Amino acid sequence: MPPTDASTDTGTSPTPHIGGGADDTLDLRLPEELIALFGEGTPTSVGVPSDAASAGGLLDAPAGWGPVTTSVGVFRLVPVRIERDLARITRWMNDPAVAAFWELSGPEAVTAAHLRPQLDGDGRSIPCLGVLDGIPMSYWEIYRADLDPLARHYPSRPHDTGIHLLVAGVADRGRGVGTTLLRAVSGLVLDHRPRCGRVIAEPDLRNTPSVSAFLSAGFRFQAEVDLPDKRAALMVRDRALRDLL
Rank of each mutant, 00 (worst) to 15 (best):
P3R: 02
S13L: 14
S13N: 08
G21P: 02
L26R: 02
L26I: 07
R29T: 01
A36Q: 03
A36P: 03
E40T: 00
A52W: 10
A61N: 10
A63Q: 13
G64S: 14
T69N: 05
V74L: 03
I82T: 06
A87G: 13
I89N: 07
D95L: 14
P96K: 14
A97F: 05
A100Q: 08
A100E: 13
Q118I: 11
L119A: 09
S125N: 11
L129G: 04
D133N: 12
M137D: 07
E141Y: 01
A145V: 06
L147K: 02
L150M: 11
A151H: 11
H159M: 10
I163N: 02
L165S: 10
D172A: 12
R173A: 08
G174V: 08
R175C: 10
V177D: 05
L182C: 12
S186N: 10
G187V: 13
L190Y: 10
H192C: 07
R193H: 14
P203N: 06
L205T: 01
S210W: 00
S216M: 09
G218P: 06
F219N: 04
R220L: 12
A223T: 01
K230A: 14
R231Y: 00
A232E: 00
A233C: 08
R237C: 09
R237L: 15
A240W: 05
D243C: 10
